[in-house]
């Protein structure tokens, strides 16, 4: 090939390729036919390439998934170890309480609530997440009014109990009323559910409430710890001369959880 021939050929091939790529000419019948014939010529190779491609892609994604699971497993093991240490600490307090109870002649300490592990079986099809159905019912010891938790937050309250399942209404449901307290002030209020935010009822205009304040569950009988319900999302002065409107964003989104804990009334654990 002569020198100028080399330049012209190179230039021609580059221009041709660029035109084919940048314009929609590759979709034209002529180029499409060339492409089709070429593809047919190497069809077994393309099929082989596709199967190898899918195989490798599948193996790589499985490997990445396994690595992620391994990391999650390590993190969960750490959490478990921390929980075990905390459990040992709590058992020490329990023993001290029992000893003090004996010395003072008070009935020995018993667990104030039972724990039932369950799984969410069904979500609210309306999309408003007003309720969930969990796979634990009266056979497991679930009762109406039991509190349902996940990740340390309140998922809702058991409203209807069946033999093997229960219907739990969430903080996004307007039928839910909970006794709560504000972490910042320690003052008790009533939480009324709502979508997309719930509301604290009868908050005095003089009460100090700030957006972001944590709203905690308050067991009227004092049996259960203060689990998080949500946080204050916004405050409005409203028309009522005595009370302001405090909106609460629930901390748990039912769609993001699968496993839950149902807290039942006190039994010896």
């Amino acid at each position: 090939m002569k020198r100028y021939g080399f330049h012209i050929t190179s230039l021609f091939l580059i221009t041709l390729s660029l035109v084919v790529f940048l314009t929609e000419i590759s979709g034209s019948p002529v180029v499409g036919k060339v492409k089709e014939v070429s593809a047919r010529f190497v069809l077994p190779v393309i099929n082989l390439k596709e199967s190898i491609f899918i195989f490798i892609e599948d193996r790589v994604s499985r490997y990445i998934l396994l690595v992620n699971l391994k990391e999650e497993n390590i993190s969960l093991r750490r959490e478990l170890e921390t929980c075990k240490v905390e459990e040992a600490e709590l058992n020490t307090y329990k023993r001290t309480l029992n000893r003090l109870g004996k010395e003072l002649g008070i009935e020995s300490f018993k667990s104030l609530y039972g724990i039932i592990f369950s799984r969410i079986m069904y979500y609210d099809p309306s999309g408003l997440d007003n309720f969930v159905v969990v796979s634990a019912g009266s056979r497991s010891g679930v009762e109406r009014g039991n509190i349902v938790l996940s990740k340390g937050g309140v998922v809702g309250q058991v409203r209807e109990v069946y033999t093997t399942t229960s219907r739990v209404i969430t903080p996004l449901n307007s039928e839910l009323n909970l006794s709560v307290l504000l972490e910042s002030s320690g003052k008790a209020y009533i939480y009324k559910g709502g979508y997309p935010v719930g509301e604290l009822l009868y908050v005095n205009k003089k009460d100090k409430v700030e957006p972001g304040d944590k709203v905690l569950y308050r067991d009227p009988q004092g049996r259960l710890p203060n689990f998080e319900v949500g946080y204050v999302s916004s405050i409005e002065e409203g028309k009522n001369p005595f009370f302001k409107r405090v909106y609460v964003k629930p901390v748990i989104s039912p769609r993001n959880i699968e496993l839950v804990i149902v807290l039942t009334k006190g039994k010896e654990r």
Partner: peptide
């Protein structure tokens, strides 16, 4: 050009590898 054409057929990107490979060459 041939290598670029084969890669374009495999990647379904007709013209990309051909142009860049010929220019590089």
């Amino acid at each position: 050009f041939f290598g670029g054409f084969m890669l374009d057929i495999f990647h379904d990107s007709l013209g990309l590898f051909m142009s860049v490979n010929v220019l590089s060459a």
